[in-house]
Nucleic acid binder design. Structure first.
Lengths: 204, 204
DNA sequence: GGGGCATGTTGACCGCGTCAACATACAAGC
DNA sequence: GCTTGTATGTTGACGCGGTCAACATGCCCC
């Protein structure tokens, strides 16, 4: 019961701060997030957040953690309904990953930006980002057991897959990709190429 | 002769600004780059840069452009000495790409960060980043003609390849990858998987 | 050698993150 | 119920950083 966040003056300000900060990031980008703006949006003064976060970065880390959790949930959800006997599941995960980034560009940027990641000491962040990787590893391991993906360290495969989808997401978000290309098709092609490479490694 | 940047008061301050800013980014990260610091490092006041750049972001864009040019040069150099009749060239390009990012993390971050990319209106930046893609497309086209890479839009393949190396570079830079893994091996595995996927697309 | 423009300087302003001193509200024990 | 302590929120102030306007200075051209 020691953890009751309930109402002293405001009532669970900590959660509200994270929530509002996330909303502001989505609406106006990271630059629009200032301690003063967050406070005023919650009817609270600029100093109030410092009772819950040591500094602004700590708040942003919390927002990033929240982002990783949402992303993890979403990837986990791509589980359901997938035809279970093909790499389809991995393909869907990749697709959902990129889609998440496209739908929440500023939030995604924060998750992978140095602002948040400079604080990898923060165990929560390490854990949330780590969970992403672990899920990937697990899925790959399953596919390996089914012979759908070549053997070898599943973690290495996971890194490769992660790189591919993260790279695509990043390039799309940062508008490095010609807006005329069909994004859906590009996502499909990326996952296809990736899976093709994982499936069949011809010797040198 | 109209473009002589030579000495009014300082002597080609514009170039010096870009140079010093790039150096400071490498040494102390983007946060360490302030107009005042840049100025004092050049023996110039804080206001001087504004005679050459409309604002700080414009300066950073110039630094980013310089980064893309360096990266392009480096990728072009991986041309020489590669055994010309295999995808080896593409593999080397990928490797050099990631290595560049690892050697200049802050600079690389800037190149792909919103700070610079928000100014895509800036034609120089579009051009420098575009050249990267064009080079990739060209190499892929050559490999396609040799039958080493599957057909289809080479631009799409280029985006996929770019995503893979950029994603890996980004994850490495942001310390998302377990420091215990062998980076060289991971780079090799990524390019191998990528090329495998590009080479051989088995039908669904 | 004087006028005009490019370049550099300085003072000032504002917004920001942050801290310390202060204020207030809630909980618990008497 | 009242006191007291602590968790929470407020306010004033500081320093830093980007930026602009007013001013100063050097260079080129006529």
């Amino acid at each position: 019961m020691a953890e009751r966040d309930r109402a002293y003056h405001h009532g669970d300000l900590r959660s509200s701060l994270v929530e509002v900060a996330a909303a502001m990031i989505s609406e106006g980008g990271t630059a629009s997030v200032t301690m003063r703006a967050i406070g005023s949006r919650l009817g609270v003064s600029r100093g109030a957040p410092y009772r819950h976060f040591s500094d602004k970065t700590a708040l942003l880390v919390a927002v990033a953690v929240e982002g990783f959790k949402r992303l993890n949930r979403r990837l986990g959800a791509s589980d359901t309904g997938a035809s279970p006997s093909s790499v389809e599941k991995l393909r869907r995960m990749g697709e959902q990953y990129v889609r998440f980034a496209l739908e929440h560009p500023a939030h995604y940027r924060l998750m992978y930006g140095k602002e948040a990641l400079a604080r990898q000491d923060q165990p929560e962040l390490r854990e949330a980002a780590g969970a992403l990787l672990e899920n990937l590893v697990e899925v790959i391991r399953v596919h390996q057991q089914r012979g759908e993906i070549e053997g070898g360290d599943p973690r290495a495969h996971a890194y490769v897959a992660w790189s591919a989808v993260h790279g695509l997401a990043s390039l799309l978000i940062e508008k490095q990709i010609d807006p005329n290309v069909d994004v859906d098709e590009l996502i499909r092609q990326t996952t296809r190429t990736l899976l093709g490479g994982l499936r069949d490694r011809s010797p040198d």
